[in-house]
């Protein structure tokens, strides 16, 4: 039940956090703690120090800048689920947030934590890919903005460099209907497969999470759909559309089954965005 011992630092502001992070390469940031603390309790992670950013006002808050929705990294899943601005600018976000864990998890876990942690079974990456989100990453040395297509690199791997903090998630205003469909692992409730679809004037985007090492766009489905969201086309574009080759396989779901589920969920999500 106990984690290994660690030093605890509560950052007073973002600069303070960045400085501590730069000085302390062994330290880990603590946001909602809902990925980190369970791992530490099982002693699968034993950081020597934690820098608590969970109470930083600078990472809080939901605002807009023109057509851009800007989420502080510390915005919780529950805030995404219930916030009016989010519902107006990017209703796909709450459609995903309702699937994250349970009410208690949603009250603590953060969108920044999800983005930083890059769990292959996390929900948001699918939707963020379709929404064309980008992430503001800050370090003691400066800041940069990385687009979602360049950000998620692999299983628990991102563009985030040592010393960097995800501070904001930028989401262009959602221009059409979006939907997220999830098939949960019956024990953990994480995604076995999750598929987000977005139909905007520029075209239809579909992305998948859970099934592989990282979330990816289902470009073959997108191409087959084009702009034809008729029932028949959705069916034919999603059936056997996902290749099992690169997918994860475990005792609960084989790669083949995951590929099949991805097609099913893509169909269901697309049916909802037409």
């Amino acid at each position: 039940m106990y984690t290994t011992p660690f030093d605890y630092h509560r950052a007073v502001n973002l600069d303070d956090a960045l400085k501590m992070l730069a000085d302390n390469p062994d330290a880990k940031l603590l946001a909602g703690g809902h990925s980190l603390i369970p791992t530490m309790k099982l002693r699968l992670a034993s950081p020597s120090a934690l820098i608590d950013i969970s109470a930083l006002d600078e990472l809080r808050g939901i605002r807009t800048d023109g057509d851009m929705l800007i989420l502080g990294a510390g915005v919780t899943h529950a805030e995404l689920l219930y916030d009016k601005t989010v519902a107006e600018y990017a209703p796909l976000m709450p459609d995903m947030a309702r699937w994250v864990g349970d009410p208690m998890v949603r009250n603590r876990g953060t969108v920044g934590g999800v983005v930083a942690h890059a769990d292959p079974a996390a929900d948001y990456p699918a939707g963020l890919l379709t929404l064309g989100a980008s992430f503001k990453l800050k370090s003691a040395g400066g800041e940069r903005v990385v687009g979602v297509d360049d950000y998620f690199k692999g299983m628990f791997e991102t563009a985030l460099q040592e010393g960097e903090i995800v501070t904001e998630i930028h989401i262009p205003r959602q221009a059409g209907k979006g939907a997220y469909e999830k098939f949960r692992h019956p024990a953990s409730h994480y995604a076995i497969v999750g598929v987000a679809a977005l139909a905007s004037p520029e075209g239809v985007k579909v992305a998948m999470t859970g099934a592989g090492p990282k979330a990816v766009r289902l470009t073959q489905v997108e191409q087959a759909i084009g702009s034809d969201l008729s029932d028949e086309n959705i069916k034919s574009a999603t059936e056997n559309a996902v290749d099992a080759g690169s997918l994860l396989s475990d005792r609960f779901a084989s790669a083949e089954y995951r590929a099949h589920l991805a097609g099913v969920l893509a169909k269901r999500a697309l049916m909802r965005v037409k």
Partner: peptide, 10 residues
């Protein structure tokens, strides 16, 4: 919240 997934210091 789940009080097992939160340090008292927090």
């Amino acid at each position: 919240v789940k009080s097992c997934t939160l340090f008292a210091v927090q």
